[in-house]
Write a protein that binds this DNA or RNA. Sequence first.
DNA 1: CTGTGACTCGTAGTCCGTA
DNA 2: TTACGGACTACGAGTCACA
Lengths: 73, 73
Amino acid sequence: MALRQIFADNLRRARLAAGMSQEELADVAGIDRTYVSALERCRYAASIDVMERLATALQVTPASLLEDVGDVV
Amino acid sequence: MALRQIFADNLRRARLAAGMSQEELADVAGIDRTYVSALERCRYAASIDVMERLATALQVTPASLLEDVGDVV
DNA sequence: CTGTGACTCGTAGTCCGTA
DNA sequence: TTACGGACTACGAGTCACA
């Protein structure tokens, strides 16, 4: 499993856990609304500083967004 | 402290711990020697898939490269 | 072995609108 | 609320020569 996919999964999970919409998260993190959508859909390989902003906005550690939780499916 | 800096530090530490030169790491990770140098010097905000390749080459988890170990200085 | 400036090229990332 | 497309710009990706 690619790391981008793991990141996408963790991002979505963390966002939902925080009870935020993509729009809210994008707003708080200071990034584009459609970009959050694209990230969760694994369209892009986010750079490290975007990860940082996202992690901060979600109040989780950046490292936790890369943790491989295996197939939750 | 910016995450890019933490990443740069962790990258260098992991590389030295593995007893590799920038050249060797670059070779194993399949990226340019000078690019590894640039990354360790915090010149760029590495993207997630570069991190993945680097982590694999160093045989550490991608998440460990983002762990804030504080000022080791 | 490593740092660095210069360079090209691809894509990250933004902004628009629509379903 | 989210997925997704197009068009655009900024910056990361990747390489070279030289110190």
